[in-house]
Design a protein around this nucleic acid. Structure first.
Lengths: 381, 381
DNA sequence: TTGTAGGCGTTATCAT
DNA sequence: ATGATAACGCCTACAA
């Protein structure tokens, strides 16, 4: 439409209050512009726009009308500079493309948005150095707080925390320790429940396909598995506890190794749903069936779990809710409350079609899985 | 000039220059603080930190050392205020928990990060009003650009674009029209390829399970399906084209309706992988098998597609790459280049186990799917 | 090579 | 109820 009229739409619409054209990236109207148009001082405009009671209702209305007409939008950056609070938080994840991280991010974003906060997204790609850089970058952006999800360098945050002096909340992170605030799932309980479920179904030879060893989440889930075995008087066999990397590809290989054992397992407890997905593929590829030949459990209850064939018995994490809780904790921290600390979220076993009685191998059965779920531990959502 | 020596961590660490404690949110050191410590003026510090050649290497080194020791971090907000460029972009998605959006977001974040930009995440929850609000909020944050993914109100952005005067790039959006910049997948081609594949396998009675009707992406994919039918001389049957909502739950119901037809389809072309996942569930629930009884195709090639049983034949979208392209286009737009416009990305058929010859029903066959993929259209990644 | 003097768009602190 | 005036932390002239 108009070509050289760099004067922004607002000013043009108002009758060309712009004295001279700007070469700058098209300045948005400021309170000073509005003040000039309304024939008042900028502070008055500022007050009017904040619905301050200190301003005459009539002038306030007039100012708001003018601001509206001018397409005025307050600058959060200028406000942030003077108030020293940007109403911005940083979210560090390995990658949002990961379904778990996506769900958590969704919960965080929701809660943040509800409170007028914006969320900076930072992917660390599971690289510690990169992760550190991202946190630094967030600090430069002057975020009011930071949430780190599924980090593998959680312990490194303690010194950072002190240095950056920015409130932080960790979600399912590595060694949150005593000094930081966190939201964690009850890994041991969840994993134990899954394993107990398999034991109840008569399984004795139960394998575990984990994440890379050494991480807290992995260690805790493995521990839950061991606890359940011990409680049932089943001896832990090191050959049955193998490692993947939390992704299906590695799980295929790990599971295949288990199936090649002289005495292969009849059930497998997986670190997470992605791992379970890979394990199921490995089982099917060998011509075996789930759950008739091998029962499988996951962890997370990602959206696809109930749509796998058979649908996956898994341990549910309320991922969105956890994100929301993390954000709410962070909000408290940012407002000065130093009370909240470590939040432990209970995990819930969701029994579906991928687990069945040990030795229950009714020959050729085509309709595996489906909605065949026992009543126990059904999801409440 | 300033009599009140605001104490801060840096100064304290450097020898306790802070006279008295502050109740403020603990100010970070500024260039002025560094200047005082280095006994130079702030502009000199500013220049030194920007590696300006206008500053004496010796003093520059000294300044950098002091800044480092003081834990100085430049304030992006102050810089943004003066430069009028925040090096920040907004990303609007329905929800990052959606795998497609997550992948695109990942690509965007990557590219943004590579260029020193930070990404604001904004979930619209598929609500037009909310989406509009998020864009306004981003404008107040003074983002340099905005990317909108899978919006259903794409056309509404034209007026917004003019009003906000912020460069925008849309990814797989609704009616991008002539005036906005976009990255779109070749929906018709992709859908046509999938349908042609089914036709080549001998199918004649091919159904289509779409998204809610009226959206451009949906319309185009349906169109591709129709084109393939027409080219093969198969008459389009309205009863075989049904609607879901892009999510598995709705697809289960839609597919079930198709299976209840007097003359049910032997193949179904689905709007996306989520829909295909639901369709497969509906098929199995009825005691039918994929692909022996019904062949299924998806669209997207989400991470789980190859792990479904049978693995899903689908049309691949290079999602991360598309996000990256969108960001790169946005970078150009933000730097003033007004050249880039509508980018169309080719879709690639990936043949896997969920599609098979029509009428090829070899009785009870347990090992469905797996890695049984024909050579045609294999992914190159 | 360095320092001085604005100004970015707000809010905050005083006056009036 | 309103208006000057001064920050906030940085950058960019321009002056020295």
């Amino acid at each position: 439409m108009l070509e050289k009229e760099r004067g922004n739409a607002a000013q043009v619409a108002l009758g060309g209050a712009g004295e001279r054209a700007r070469r700058q990236p098209l300045r948005q109207p400021s309170i000073k512009d509005i003040a000039r148009l309304a024939r008042v001082s900028h502070p008055t405009v500022s007050r009017a726009l904040q619905n301050s009671p200190l301003v005459n209702p009539a002038t306030a209305a007039k100012i708001r009308k003018i601001a509206e007409a001018a397409g005025y939008r307050p600058s959060a950056v200028a406000r942030g500079l003077v108030t020293r609070r940007t109403r911005t938080v940083g979210l560090v994840v390995t990658t949002v493309a990961d379904p778990f991280a996506g769900e958590v991010a969704c919960g965080i974003e929701q809660a943040a948005n509800d409170h007028g906060y914006a969320v900076f997204l930072a992917n660390s790609n599971a690289d510690a150095e990169c992760e550190r850089k991202m946190v630094q970058a967030l600090a430069e952006r002057r975020v009011d707080g930071i949430i780190v999800t599924s980090s593998r360098v959680g312990s490194d945050y303690l010194p950072m925390l002190a240095e950056l002096n920015v409130p932080m909340v960790l979600v399912n992170d590595q060694y949150p320790g005593e000094f930081v605030h966190s939201v964690m799932i009850a890994n041991e309980n969840g994993s134990r429940a899954a394993t107990e479920h398999l034991i109840e179904l008569g399984h004795r030879r139960i394998a575990y396909v984990g994440d890379r060893s050494g991480y807290q989440t992995e260690t805790e889930r493995l521990e839950g598995y061991k606890q359940a075995l011990a409680a049932a008087g089943i001896e832990y066999a090191a050959e049955l506890a193998v490692h993947g990397d939390g992704r299906p590809e590695a799980a295929v290989a790990a599971m295949d190794g288990l199936l090649k054992l002289a005495d292969p397992p009849t059930a497998v407890c997986c670190y997470n749903d992605m791992t379970a997905m890979g394990a199921m593929r490995a089982i099917r590829t060998r011509g075996l069936r789930v759950p008739e030949d091998v029962s499988v459990t996951g962890f997370d209850d990602l959206f696809f779990a109930k749509y796998l064939e058979p649908s996956l018995t898994t341990v549910r994490q309320p991922m969105r809710r956890m994100g929301q809780m993390a954000m709410e904790n962070l909000l408290k921290l940012m407002s000065g409350e130093d009370s909240v600390a470590q939040v432990k979220v209970e995990a819930e076993l969701v029994v579906r079609g991928s687990t069945g009685r040990a030795g229950a191998n009714p020959g050729l059965k085509v309709e595996t899985g489906g909605t065949r779920a026992s009543g126990a531990g059904r999801r409440n959502g």
